[in-house]
Design a protein around this nucleic acid. Structure first.
Lengths: 226, 226
DNA sequence: GCGCTAAGTAAATAAATTTTTATTATTTTG
DNA sequence: CAAAATAATAAAAATTTATTTACTTAGCGC
């Protein structure tokens, strides 16, 4: 009864932790949690309530900063693509031993997918939606062009040097590299059940990495007697 | 004339096409449409209303025959797995030229995925759900074991005969065959945007098929001078 | 300090989707 | 052929989920 700090007459004296005001941080928090949520559950499975819980903020903030669930999804998709684009520009292919470069190409792709699980998960969902949103994003469209061009160069150089024994379509090679690096992650649950192994196990992944490199090099006709 | 279909007095004389009673057909219709719906939109994106529309029946029927949306999803998943299991048992590997058999293995997998789009789509969604439901299905778990065992045999025979130059882990080979056959379909939307080609185009698919075979044979060390 | 703007909160609303209830009609069977 | 069983329908109810409204308050520039 005799509370020293008398609570508001018409409001329960909730000990609410008032979030300090920090627009940039709030926005970033929401986006970060949203990537996680959309990656984990897909667009339709994602719940804005879970996002607010995770970002420790109010649902209103999502509408304040992003406009709605859909726009938030788009922002999340853009953000994971921006991240990989940054990484891709860092490694510069073009010079050096074609065989070493080819190996590096596979290993980079493989490792990036393994380390950035959310990227593949976002993409898996985006494909479930038939690329509904990716088509809107101009920035995404032409981001991997240099990557594919680099593969084209690589193939030509390796063939000219006589270390590769074929000159395949760079697009096919690109798709193959990505497929070998991504499929076991994208389908870890079902494949794991079917083959009776845990595909997320580091030992399997290490084996898979070496296998992927071996497959690509063998296809290019590189001699690997060992 | 005594049986002139006189409309009920206390009910509007709606010209409703009364569905003839056929439990088996109704159930089958629902299941078939459900496979389509779940494949297209995933579990969370699927709408029971669309399923009833497609199956030309009432929502109540879904609960009548299956128990609910979740159980219907499980039935749909089982049904697509049952279909591929049936096909797999038909082609019997084991004898014959190892190289021809290996080629047949890749081509079968590739063609099955291409022709049965719903299978891959159901699986993609199931992985998005982290294999939540596949784990419950005992029948699915051990269905591909013979397939993998066949690959193991194939590898051994080919190696013994000297036509293969390595003896890889059958599981890795299996994952690779599936990856090469499935990834471009699973990611047609995003990959297509990124490489600027329509991956659903028959010409691309034909090229991809040949590529997949070439990659696997090259990896196994088969000489294909041509 | 003062007031204004925008960040933040709580709670209501609106919309959608799944699930049940109540009822009718058809087929099967004793 | 009557009665029981069950397939089918319409519509309501329950539930979940996204979005808005109305309001509060912190923090910044003056």
């Amino acid at each position: 009864m005799s509370r020293m700090t008398r609570p508001k007459a018409d409001r329960p004296p909730k000990t609410q932790a008032v979030r300090s005001r920090d627009p940039a941080r709030t926005r970033a928090d929401i986006l970060s949690v949203a990537v996680q949520e959309f990656a984990e559950h897909g667009f339709h499975g994602a719940r804005v309530e879970r996002i607010t819980k995770g970002a420790k903020c109010n649902a209103r903030m999502i509408y304040h900063y992003f406009g709605g669930k859909e726009q938030l999804y788009l922002a999340a998709l853009d953000s994971v693509y921006a991240a990989i684009r940054m990484r891709e520009t860092q490694l510069c292919f073009g010079a050096g031993d074609p065989v070493a470069e080819a190996r590096r190409l596979v290993e980079f792709t493989f490792d990036y997918f393994a380390e950035n699980a959310n990227f593949l998960k976002m993409i898996r969902n985006e494909n479930l939606l038939n690329g509904m949103y990716i088509k809107r994003s101009k920035t995404i469209r032409d981001m991997s062009q240099p990557f594919i061009a680099a593969i084209g160069d690589l193939v030509e150089r390796g063939y000219a040097a006589g270390v590769f024994r074929c000159r395949p379509d760079p697009v096919q090679v690109y798709v193959t590299v990505v497929a070998l690096s991504a499929h076991h992650l994208n389908n870890a649950a079902t494949l794991g059940t079917v083959v009776g192994q845990d595909l997320t196990d580091p030992a399997f992944q290490a084996e898979r990495r070496a296998h992927a490199v071996a497959v690509v090099l063998a296809y290019l006709g590189v001699r690997t007697e060992n």
